[in-house]
Simulated assay, not measured.
Amino acid sequence: MNKAIIFSIGTALIASLFSINAQAQDVKGTAQAGQAKVWICVGCHAIPEYRADWPQVYRVPKLGGQNAEYIIASLKAYKSGERKHPTMRGIAGSLSDQDMADIAAYYAAQNANSPRNPLK
């Protein structure tokens, strides 16, 4: 194969990798956008002391006031299968990086005294 073609393909691949990485780093969440997206979270995370019992008993944590980076990392771990809860894996699998950032920003802006259900 021609060296110029190989060089061009290699350069294009490297440029696309940098582009993907730059896009992932540029994702900034907003609490306002997150408020419109947390409807899927409210069903479990807005119930005080809620425990899900399938496939085993899980204590469902309160998310208000949680660190945004932790929420994003947790959602990505569910999406990748690193964390195993099947319902959370399905939910996280449907979220884009922007959705995760917005949801995380919303919950990070909350505190223990914030209303549990943002849809009221």
Rank of each mutant, 00 (worst) to 15 (best):
S8R: 12
V38L: 02
P61W: 01
A73H: 10
A4C: 03
I40M: 14
H85I: 07
I91T: 07
W54M: 13
E49F: 12
A33M: 08
I40D: 10
K76C: 05
A52I: 10
R116F: 08
Q66S: 11
C41G: 00
D99V: 08
D26L: 13
Q25M: 14
S114N: 08
Y107C: 04
A105P: 14
K84H: 11
I14Q: 01
N111V: 04
L13H: 00
R51K: 10
N113Y: 07
I14G: 09
A104V: 04
H45T: 09
A109R: 01
Y107P: 00
K62I: 12
G43Y: 02
R59G: 09
M1K: 12
N21L: 12
N117Q: 06
M1E: 12
D53N: 11
I103V: 15
Y78W: 03
L63H: 06
D102N: 06
L13W: 04
N2F: 08
G81M: 02
E69S: 15
E82T: 14
A46S: 14
I71L: 10
Q66F: 06
K62T: 13
K84G: 13
A101G: 08
G34V: 03
F18G: 07
K76Y: 05
Q66E: 14
T30N: 09
I47P: 07
A33H: 09
D102E: 07
S94H: 11
L75C: 02
S80N: 05
M88P: 13
K62V: 11
Y50P: 10
A52T: 02
V42G: 08
K3A: 14
C41V: 00
Q56H: 11
I40S: 12
F18W: 03
G43F: 06
A92M: 04
H45W: 01
K79C: 02
A52W: 10
K62W: 12
G34A: 04
Y50E: 14
S94A: 09
I9S: 07
P48A: 12
Q25Y: 09
L63E: 02
I71N: 00
P86D: 09
A101E: 00
F18I: 04
A36G: 11
N67F: 10
S74A: 15
S19P: 02
V42Y: 05
R59K: 15
I40V: 15
T87Y: 14
G64H: 12
N2P: 14
G65E: 06
A68T: 04
A33F: 02
A101T: 01
S16M: 14
N67V: 00
A33Q: 13
Q23R: 13
Q98E: 12
G29S: 04
R83V: 01
A108K: 11
M88V: 04
L95H: 01
Q35V: 04
A108V: 02
D97Y: 00
I47H: 08
S114Y: 11
G90A: 03
I103K: 01
L75A: 05
I72L: 01
L75W: 04
S114C: 05
W54D: 14
Q25I: 09
L63Q: 05
N113F: 09
R51Y: 08
K28G: 08
A46N: 08
F7T: 15
G93M: 07
L17C: 09
I9P: 06
